[in-house]
Design a protein around this nucleic acid. Structure first.
Ligand SMILES: [Mn+2]
Ligand SMILES: [Mn+2]
Ligand SMILES: [Mn+2]
Ligand SMILES: [Mn+2]
Lengths: 219, 219
DNA sequence: TTCTATTTTTAGATTAGACTAAAAATTATA
DNA sequence: TATAATTTTTAGTCTAATCTAAAAATAGAA
């Protein structure tokens, strides 16, 4: 139906629309896809012709309902495959993203219906990200960045914002994974760094770590 | 490592080398890939430069050891994925080829190691075709086409030569699958048609059917 | 062996997707 | 508001993979 490149653009724009609200700029797309702005202009003009997004020169783009549906479906496939890789093939959560980047483009409705059933219709992927349903609807959950919660509050880790191998391996070393309880013992206003408690351990984390961990506070 | 097109050419040539012995002609490749001879010439010149096959103008091609290894690995992936689709996702054997055509190009050594283990290191795919091992070695089994065996002989169905949905659905209708015992009750020399016994049923099959069914005769 | 039919290759064009360099539009600053 | 900086688009080039049409080589028949 759509080419690999088209699917990747739609997916990137979908993520950017959620990250910032409203229109997405050419440069933002180029940066997130590690490509040149001129290449982006080319592609968004093509996607606009196919009515997958709306585009006015110099004004950025916005996905149409159809564009959102296609993007959400690619993301659904990506995350279901990540669950498969971790749950069935025993991959570690830091190893699955690259492979899912390829698997998300396999074209077969029936395959995804069956894969979803085989996995027990999971709602979240191994990084805590919600899996869109077959209509492309993303369940929004209540979650905050660890960096947003205050001293003496606690939360349960429910996801990661960044999911690079480097970051995930850091979390492993610190024994933090989805479901881990975290208490903020101290917070430095100057640089946003924190002292946190994880299990019986207490240690320092930088702002960069805290702003990439999602937690749910239970109050 | 290699592009999708390169992998498909290598796979097609590998199959053709087994079907006919020796060099493979440009036209044979073009026909099997449903493309034009001029496109084939282009690609085989590229593959020759990469030392995946040897090529002399007008003389056809032959895979190098490296070319064979790459091709066998693609076939290994194709067949392992077919086993996955049938054994784990309950697809029917006539539905898996198209999807495996896509999955065979996913690049990840580790994925195939784990998939193989997950499936219990199967030796044959759902159509009875042998799965090359990790070094690209294809186990050759003793098998004949049903059309080659004589009246009153019997055999066990161990594979299909053609695996189009149409043919596989025909076999289903006749209750023939891998492992089914077949006895040849009569054979017409004029057109190669046969009367065969399958279970308690006796029926007529054309030569076209008989020359696409592999059997093992146990004597 | 000479001519003809077939096979294969070359030449040139096309499309998708990327790039660089330069032009145009927008935004920020003085 | 005029000028400078930044963002975005256009113009033109490149590569992979395909095609058509025509030329060249080989194989088959007379
Ligand atoms: Mn991922
Ligand atoms: Mn994920
Ligand atoms: Mn197949
Ligand atoms: Mn098969």
């Amino acid at each position: 139906m759509f080419t690999l490149a088209e699917e990747n653009y739609l997916k990137a724009i979908f993520h950017l629309e959620h990250e910032f609200q409203g229109e997405v700029s050419t440069n933002a797309i180029a940066e997130s896809m590690e490509t040149k702005p001129s290449s982006v202009t080319d592609m968004i003009q093509k996607l606009a012709e196919k009515k997958l997004l709306t585009y006015k020169r110099y004004k950025g783009v916005q996905l149409t309902a159809e564009g959102k549906k296609v993007a959400a479906n690619v993301i659904r496939k990506h995350r279901l495959w990540e669950v498969f890789l971790v749950e069935k093939l025993s991959f570690h959560w830091d190893q699955v993203h690259e492979i899912a980047e390829q698997l998300e483009h396999i074209q077969s409705e029936e395959l995804i219906i069956r894969l979803d059933k085989f996995l027990g219709s999971p709602e979240f992927d191994p990084h805590g990200d919600p899996i869109p349903d077959k209509h492309g609807v993303l369940k929004r959950t209540e979650k905050k960045l660890l960096s947003e919660i205050d001293k003496n509050q606690k939360g349960v880790c429910v996801g990661v914002k960044e999911s690079s191998p480097e970051f995930l391996q850091y979390l492993d070393k610190k024994k933090i994974s989805i479901g881990t309880k975290i208490r903020v013992l101290g917070k430095e206003f100057f640089d946003g760094s924190m002292i946190i408690q994880v299990g019986s351990e207490q240690f320092f984390i930088s702002h960069k770590i805290a702003e990439n961990l999602y937690v749910q506070t239970q109050e």
